[in-house]
Design a protein around this nucleic acid. Structure first.
Length: 948
RNA sequence: GCGGGGGUGGCCGAGAUAGGUCCAAGGCGCCAGCCUUAGGAGCUGGUGGGCAUUAGGCCCGCGAGGGUUCAAAUCCCUCCCCCCGCACCA
């Protein structure tokens, strides 16, 4: 292992010293510009990152060898809030985080204290990730590195947002967010206990009245037609509040929620729930008076703490009502008469298959729910809800909604009630309770001056579609997903009040959030080189300069002069951008289709002219660790630094890129990585054997031809696979299959050293994109003067082709298999006779091949036709039998007997070695010995066997 | 629910937009033999189920069921199941 590490360091150093991955415009070379989503520096890179980055690198290396001037840059995405939250947790001494930092990330304890500062934390992981990328041997042009909080980048984002603003693509509006009332801040997943993402759901608040408003909250506004009563929890304390002109009654818990949702609420006084029981309220849709009844299942923390009762369609309500009937004495407490219950009957308002008039009752009975406090009630609710929502239809008694599907009626009822001032939208945390790390319960806050990027703009969508249509999507299966994503996009809240990033230019209270400041930065790499060289800086960069560089607008002489810049410098930068853009390939994980990658398309079409729209997107799946999802809690995350130490970079690259095709998850298994390592050293050792031979491509026998044909095919397969980023297939051909065949070759005969030397030269180049370090080492062993990373990709046309050698090989494989099969059936002997078939049988097969174009391989058609011919007719059943066997398809055979004889003779010693007994090559027509009369069984490509 | 992707041998996974040695590549695991002081090393062979066997055999098997075809994992129909996304979060 130390050996490989040494090799890797050696070549990484040489690459760096030779500056070979630093790409500058070269008008004589075709460029290829690719980028991968830049990392967020809140943790070291781990083996899983080796997928996207490793594939991008292998692709970059492949394209480079294919003769392109390849630019592969990298930067760091500091924008966002998670680092802030992490730094804060560290400051507070959160043991869980410290555990992760020390045990999983292997950060030395004494370095932890520095990371309490968010910026330092970002810098720390930035360097950690960067060194990991170097350890993995990525062919990155590091001269262009930047972070998204560098002032020049801020200028760039400012330019982008000004552009969007000018084009009317930014809007302002209301927006619900998960909110911590204590920290007074929006909360995301990383801010909550247990890393729970607060899910926001929309419900309807409906106002029942009896002078005072009794607001209920429901997911099912359409069921208002089936309301028989209202439920209030008698054990809960409610409050009377003033709401503008109205007075409402809500639970105490509801007040804060209403406040954050911008209801103009003023608290007045407390009222016990029990005091409300027995009063009547009016149903706003039909004026019906319904009573308020007591129910303990009502949670004061849910909505307003008051719910409407639809016993026909809501199992909870049905049960609560039944409970009350079973214990009518409860009503006495509230001085209510029992006969009030007699007047309440469940109302059926929705019809749905598989259920009776009253689905709530059916569900309760089917699941055997005992009462309102039974857990089964929840289950029954889900059952009825989903069934009715998807398959239900509104009945005649629902007025204007009669006949509508429930899913349509639901929205219509809600919208109508709101329009009539009888209801409001009310947001809830669907997965409540969610707690902030500070301990407070998360509520929904409606942010009133939220900025959005208006991805719902139809003209913009149209352009995005046009861009997508003109783009190559790899793999093509995900194109539909992109199409869906473009259509589905709506307004995207693009700024928030906290976090790192760029200020919104026309509203500096806001910081542009991370998915919005990372959409066109590929363009920025073309100028970041000049920034890092100190040629141009933040002070020079303003809208006019960017307009010139990226859009070619304006008078360059004047623009340069006004900013104290050299005109030539600006022109050069403009030239650099024009050279590299458009982007040739964008790489990322497939999970980013629904946000980043689609934003990437949208923003490009908004800002850049058509000829600068991106040309290709490549997405890949993720990586599992021995079949399990990688997660901090499972502790199965191996940081790159550690993984490289254990396995080496090349084996990691190979096992991550070689274990799965693009879309599926790759599985990392230490065992595979280690066996890959051994294979690499096997190639390395073999290369040493042939280093001194003089390369040539002359085949002297069947085996030489075979291995040439194989390598030729592997070049073709690897090339075709890599053009489509199918790394698994490429590695399968260039490493595993080829190695197996080389071993087979070496096993079959004394190697043709010149040929081997030539093949190793090709092989090394084939491996270079995937195992670049080992490839360099082997290249050096073979006496290469240059770096193999910059060598030309092998061309199959330069290898002589021997397709018949492949057929011969397949025949020999079949022979071996057949003889073994005979031997395992109990036959023993000291030698094997192989009888090659009679000449007429080859004629017959040839004839079938001719007829195949006409009849396929259908024996019913071939037999009559063939048997009309005298040559075959005379052979009778023997011919028919052969036709039948041949018709199973795919039979390997050589066009004539002589060729087959030759192949068998050339492979004789190989077959003998494999079988361990002598082989006699014989002929069906004139067998030297055929005591058991087996020779007649011979078929072309399938000699008859006799073991003696 | 909507949208997307899938269901193949003990496991991971090819094959499926050209239907034909596909009783299924490759790998992992497992078994046997060889080599080794030893080996979690290497090499060789084996490894779906059932039946059979002193001659390369037969039947059933690629989520379930039906169909098309001389021939289907591959094409068509019906059904079942699994995974991912549904946003303001990197």
């Amino acid at each position: 292992m130390p050996k490989l590490r040494e090799i890797e360091r050696k070549w990484q150093k040489k690459w760096e010293e030779a500056h070979i991955f630093e790409a500058d415009p070269d008008p004589n070379k075709q460029k290829f510009y690719l980028t991968v989503a830049y990392p967020y520096p809140n943790s070291p890179q781990h083996v899983g990152h080796g997928r996207t980055y490793g594939l991008t690198d292998a692709y970059a290396r492949f394209k480079r060898m294919r003769g392109f001037n390849v630019l592969f840059p990298m930067a760091f995405h500091y924008t966002g809030t998670p680092i802030l939250a992490m730094a804060k947790r560290l400051k507070e001494g959160d043991p869980e985080l410290i555990e992760i930092f020390t045990k999983v990330f292997h950060i030395p304890k004494d370095e932890l204290k520095d990371l309490k500062d968010p910026l330092k934390m970002a810098r720390y992981f930035h360097e950690e990730i960067k060194s990991g990328m170097k350890l993995m041997g990525y062919s990155i042009d590091w001269r262009r590195e930047f972070t998204t909080i560098d002032p020049p980048y801020n200028k760039f984002i400012t330019w982008q947002f000004n552009k969007l603003y000018e084009k009317g693509l930014l809007t302002k509006g209301r927006h619900p967010v998960g909110w911590c009332p204590h920290c007074n801040n929006a909360v995301g997943q990383h801010d909550t206990r247990g890393d729970v993402e607060p899910e926001i759901a929309e419900t309807t608040l409906i106002k029942f009245k009896n002078g005072i408003v009794i607001p209920v909250v429901t997911f099912r506004p359409e069921t208002i037609f089936g309301v028989t009563n209202i439920w209030i929890n008698p054990n809960v304390r409610y409050k009377i509040v003033r709401m503008g002109e109205e007075r409402w009654i809500v639970s105490e818990e509801a007040i804060i929620k209403l406040k954050f949702q911008k209801f103009p609420i003023e608290e007045e006084r407390i009222i016990e729930g029990s005091k409300l029981i027995g009063k009547y309220v009016v149903n706003p849709v039909n004026g019906q008076k319904v009573p308020i009844l007591p129910a303990e299942f009502v949670d004061p923390d849910y909505g307003t703490g008051i719910v409407m009762s639809v016993p026909g369609h809501a199992p909870y309500d049905y049960l609560a009502l039944r409970d009350l009937r079973n214990h009518p004495e409860i009503l006495n407490k509230f001085r209510m008469k029992r006969d009030i219950l007699d007047s309440i009957e469940p109302v059926s308002i929705i019809e749905v298959e598989d259920f009776s008039e009253l689905p709530a009752r059916d569900a309760v009975e089917r699941l055997g729910a005992k009462d309102q406090m039974d857990r089964k009630a929840e289950e029954a609710t889900d059952l009825v809800y989903s069934k009715e929502y998807h398959a239900g239809r509104m009945k005649e008694n629902t007025g204007p909604y009669a006949g509508l599907l429930v899913k349509e009626a639901k929205d219509r009822v809600r919208d109508d009630l709101i329009k009539q001032g009888k209801a409001h939208i009310f947001y809830v945390i669907a997965n409540a309770p969610v707690y902030c790390r500070c301990g407070a319960k998360i509520v929904v806050n409606i942010v009133t001056d939220q900025w959005f990027i208006d991805y719902s703009n139809l003209e913009w969508k149209k352009l995005a579609h046009e861009s997508l249509d003109s783009m190559k999507i790899i793999p093509k299966e995900v194109r539909k997903e992109f199409e869906e994503a473009i259509d589905w996009m709506k307004e995207k809240a693009c700024a928030r009040k906290s976090g790192l990033g760029t200020k919104l230019p026309f509203d500096p209270n806001w910081i542009i959030e991370s998915l919005s400041d990372s959409t066109i930065y590929m363009a920025y790499y073309t100028i970041s080189k000049y920034i890092n060289q100190g040629i141009i800086g933040a002070d020079h960069l303003d809208n006019e300069v960017f307009d010139y560089i990226f859009l070619g607008k304006g008078d360059v002489g004047r623009i340069a002069e006004e900013r104290g810049l050299n005109k030539e410098v600006l022109e050069k930068i403009r030239g650099e951008f024009s050279y590299w853009y458009p982007l040739d390939s964008r790489h990322s994980g497939r999970d980013l289709i629904w946000n980043h990658l689609t934003f990437f398309i949208f923003n490009h079409v908004a800002i850049f002219p058509r000829d600068l729209w991106p040309k290709q997107i490549v997405v890949n799946g993720s990586v599992t660790m021995e079949g399990k999802k990688m997660s901090k809690s499972l502790g199965n995350i191996i940081p790159i630094r550690k993984a490289v130490d254990i396995f080496g970079a090349d084996p990691i690259r190979l096992s991550v890129l070689g274990s799965a095709e693009l879309l599926s998850d790759a599985d990392f298994s230490p065992q595979v990585a280690l066996s890959t390592l051994k294979k690499l050293f096997r190639i390395h050792d073999l290369a040493k054997k042939f280093r001194d031979a003089k390369a040539n491509k002359e085949a002297v026998d069947f085996w030489d031809k075979w291995i040439l044909e194989r390598i030729r095919n592997h070049i073709i397969a690897t090339t075709e696979a890599m053009e489509e980023c199918r790394s698994r297939e490429a590695i399968n051909h260039s490493l595993y299959l080829l190695l197996n065949e080389i071993e087979e070759y070496l096993d079959a005969k004394e190697p043709n050293e010149g040929l081997m030397r030539m093949i190793f030269g090709i092989w090394t180049r084939l491996l270079s994109p995937f195992a670049p370090h080992m490839a360099e080492e082997i290249w050096e062993i073979l006496g290469g003067n240059n770096l193999v990373s910059m060598e030309k990709w092998p061309e199959p046309e330069k290898i002589p082709s021997y397709p018949e050698a492949e057929l011969s090989y397949n025949i020999i494989r079949n022979v071996l298999e057949d003889v073994r099969s005979v031997m395992t059936s109990g036959i023993k002997g000291s030698k094997v006779y192989l009888y090659v078939a009679s000449g007429w049988k080859y004629d017959l097969f040839g004839r079938i091949e001719e007829l195949k174009t006409k009849h396929g391989l259908d024996p019913r058609r071939i037999i009559p036709e063939v048997m009309r011919e005298d040559e075959f007719k005379s052979k009778g059943n023997q011919a028919v039998d052969l036709i039948r066997r041949f018709s199973t398809g795919g039979w390997p055979w050589l066009p004539n007997k002589e060729q087959e004889l030759k192949a068998l003779r050339e492979a004789k010693s190989y077959i003998e070695n494999r079988l361990g007994i002598p082989v006699l090559i014989d002929d069906e027509d004139s067998p030297s010995s055929d005591p058991k009369k087996r020779a007649g069984r011979a078929a072309p490509g399938r000699p008859a066997i006799y073991i003696e």
